[in-house]
Simulated scan of single mutants.
Amino acid sequence: MTFADISHFTLDEKLRLFPAESRTLLRPALLSILQSKAGATNDPRKSGTLRSRRLHFLKFCYDMNLRDDYLMNGPDFPHERRVATFALYTVALATGRTIKGQYIKSATIKQYLHAAASFICLFTGRDPRYNNPSDTKMSPDIHATIAEVERHENVPNKLEPYTLDMQQHLEHHNIDTKAHRDGLWKTCEDWNSIGLLDGHRLSECAQTSANKNIGDQATFDGISIAFCVEDVTCYDKSKGRVSISDFLQNPDLVWRIKTGFSHRKNGNHGEEKLFIRSEKSPLRCYIRRMHSILSRFDRLIGITTT
């Protein structure tokens, strides 16, 4: 038999409406009233969900070897154990031990608990989610788990940062697959590597989707948003200027590169950053990566700037 959710008032709360000397005699009758009110729901879908969640709680008790009193209504069954059992059930729900084995939100966890608690209340007259009948909040042991789930839900969705581990994985992938030097994977490897060093955003160095064709550049106040060859200035060991064409022919000439950012999301347009050659870590060397980027551009498009 499927019972609908019982009233918010538990049996003990109703008993307190009567004189203390009458409560023992009235308890069976009041329990009968609560059980009589628990008729089948009119919505078959809700009825099925309610039944499934109650059976899920009983299965949890079975799996945890809590099989001595499934209904928790024995004469020696302490209410503290009911609350503790529901606290453990809350943790199980929060860690994905649900009907479909999926993580659920805090609101759904509360619905699971309400379905199970309303069933147990039919036999005990006490809501196992609350320490005392007069409490307006669930037991702290239960509330703490739900609050932790809510805390994670309230964290705003943010893009995950690109990490060094991701970059190393990409480098190993390109070695294992023998990625073409002018292909997408090698291009991403170079750009992502310098991105770890200069912290640029995609919107600060690339065309928009509306301007994806070569020569159709998106501009901001007449200045190209996309990264351009003109944004790179090369210097030798003595801080003398080195042309792009000489850099392409002999990358060892260049020891410093000053990169200009014509467009910045924070409004600091025209910002420049200086990068020094790294002999200790060639894969993390900005100079070597920029040489690879410019060489690829020269092979595919052609560089006319000197």
Results as ranks from 00 to 15, higher is better:
Arg27Ser: 14
Arg27His: 12
Pro28Asn: 08
Ala29Gly: 08
Ala29Val: 08
Leu30Lys: 00
Leu31Ser: 12
Leu31Arg: 13
Ser32Gln: 09
Ser32Leu: 13
Ile33Arg: 02
Ile33Pro: 00
Ile33Ala: 01
Leu34Asp: 10
Leu34Arg: 13
Leu34Lys: 08
Gln35Met: 15
Gln35Val: 04
Gln35Leu: 11
Gln35Thr: 12
Ala38Ser: 15
Ala38Val: 03
Ala38Thr: 15
Ala38Asn: 14
Gly39Trp: 04
Gly39Asn: 05
Gly39Met: 09
Gly39Gln: 07
Thr41Leu: 10
Asn42Gln: 11
Asp43Arg: 12
Asp43Val: 07
Asp43Cys: 09
Pro44Gly: 09
Arg45Val: 09
Lys46His: 03
Ser47Trp: 11
Ser47Cys: 15
Ser47Thr: 08
Gly48Trp: 00
Gly48Met: 02
Gly48His: 00
Gly48Cys: 01
Thr49Asp: 12
Leu50Gln: 06
Arg51Glu: 05
Arg51Pro: 05
Arg51Gln: 15
Arg51Val: 14
Ser52Ile: 09
Ser52Trp: 05
Ser52Cys: 07
Arg53Ser: 01
Arg53Ile: 01
Arg54His: 03
Arg54Asp: 01
Arg54Tyr: 08
Leu55His: 12
Leu55Ile: 06
Leu55Thr: 06
His56Arg: 07
His56Met: 03
Phe57Lys: 08
Phe57Val: 09
Phe57Tyr: 14
Phe57Trp: 10
Phe57Pro: 07
Leu58Pro: 05
Lys59Asn: 13
Lys59Tyr: 04
Phe60Asn: 02
Phe60Ile: 06
Cys61Gln: 13
Cys61Gly: 04
Cys61Lys: 14
Cys61Asn: 11
Tyr62Lys: 13
Tyr62Gln: 10
Asp63Phe: 01
Asp63Gly: 00
Met64Ile: 01
Met64Ser: 05
Met64Asn: 11
Asn65Gln: 13
Asn65Val: 10
Asn65Leu: 10
Leu66Pro: 00
Leu66Ile: 15
